[in-house]
Computed example of a mutant assay.
Amino acid sequence: MNYRHAFHAANFADVLKHAVLARILAHLRQKEAGFRVIDTHAGIGLYDLAGDEAGRTGEWRGGLGRVLDAALPAATSDFLAPWLAEVRAANAGPEIALYPGSPLIAAQMLRPQDTLVANELHPEDHATLAAVLGKDAKVMSLDGWTAVKSLLPPPERRGLLLIDPPFEQPGEFDRLARALTDAHRRFATGIQLLWYPLKDPQAVESFIDRVEATGIPRILRLEHWTRRVTPDGPLVAAGMLVVNPPWTLADDAKAALPGLTEALATGPGAGWRVGWVAGE
């Protein structure tokens, strides 16, 4: 599959992924010491929802658009609040016309003592990302998988590694499992957030089994689907692994996901999952 960010900005998968990202960053800000965010597949940083790519697919209407229109339960609204605050901060007025990707969400949430390293290999996207972030980040053009090894451990010894690959090439689940292991070896105390599409449940379960076999502790699994998954259909399900998650994240997600699933559902079989691949 091809999951280049611009075509899918603000879709159902971005809603949960970026809500979790914003909550992790809010958690890291609770301590005064600086931290580092490393985004290995950063995209362009800011997306015009009426632009060529996002406007062509219109996927944002089934994600951000539904959230903005929904009467959400309190637990869901609270869970999404840090992310929605950054979405609104990226827009000059009350109308939501622009959507911030993960590097811009991070840049907006960081303090002077914190650091963002945003990596994007695609030459045109790299140039756009550098213009969007300006002096707020170090923008690099490494292969995203190479960046995991090159940029860890961070000098701050605190932080988040975000791996959100486009899944354009075969073998991405293998690369994701190796990256998780490499990152933990170099930065065992760091938080990792790893995103994946859920089109082939068997491939996902094989990936989860491989991660569990590493013996790495404290890995949380979050997934949601807007209707029943069919291998030949469009992407309707996605998941994340969070290594060393904030201690409240699992319970907060369990409280929030029923309301979010209802808001994003597009057909029979919509659902969600919060569980531990590995505990303490």
Rank of each mutant, 00 (worst) to 15 (best):
K17E: 10
H27C: 04
H27A: 14
Q30G: 09
R36W: 12
V37A: 02
D39P: 03
L46D: 07
D48Q: 12
A54M: 07
A54N: 04
G55F: 06
G58C: 06
G62M: 09
L64I: 08
V67R: 00
P73S: 05
S77V: 05
F79K: 05
L84V: 10
N91K: 11
P94R: 14
E95V: 10
G101Q: 09
S102D: 13
R111Y: 14
T115L: 11
A130I: 09
L133S: 05
D136M: 13
S141L: 07
V148D: 06
K149Q: 14
L152I: 09
P155R: 15
E156W: 02
L160Y: 07
L162M: 08
D164I: 00
E168R: 03
E168C: 04
F173Y: 11
A179Y: 00
R185V: 08
R186N: 06
R186A: 15
G190V: 05
Q192R: 01
L193E: 01
L193Y: 08
L193T: 02
K199I: 02
E205G: 02
E205I: 02
F207T: 03
R210Q: 09
R210H: 06
I219S: 02
I219Y: 05
L220R: 04
R221F: 08
L222W: 03
H224C: 13
H224Y: 13
T230W: 11
P234M: 12
G239I: 04
L241I: 10
N244L: 05
W247G: 05
L249C: 05
L249F: 03
A250H: 00
D251T: 14
D251M: 07
D251P: 00
A253V: 07
A256S: 07
P268Y: 07
W272P: 04
W276R: 05
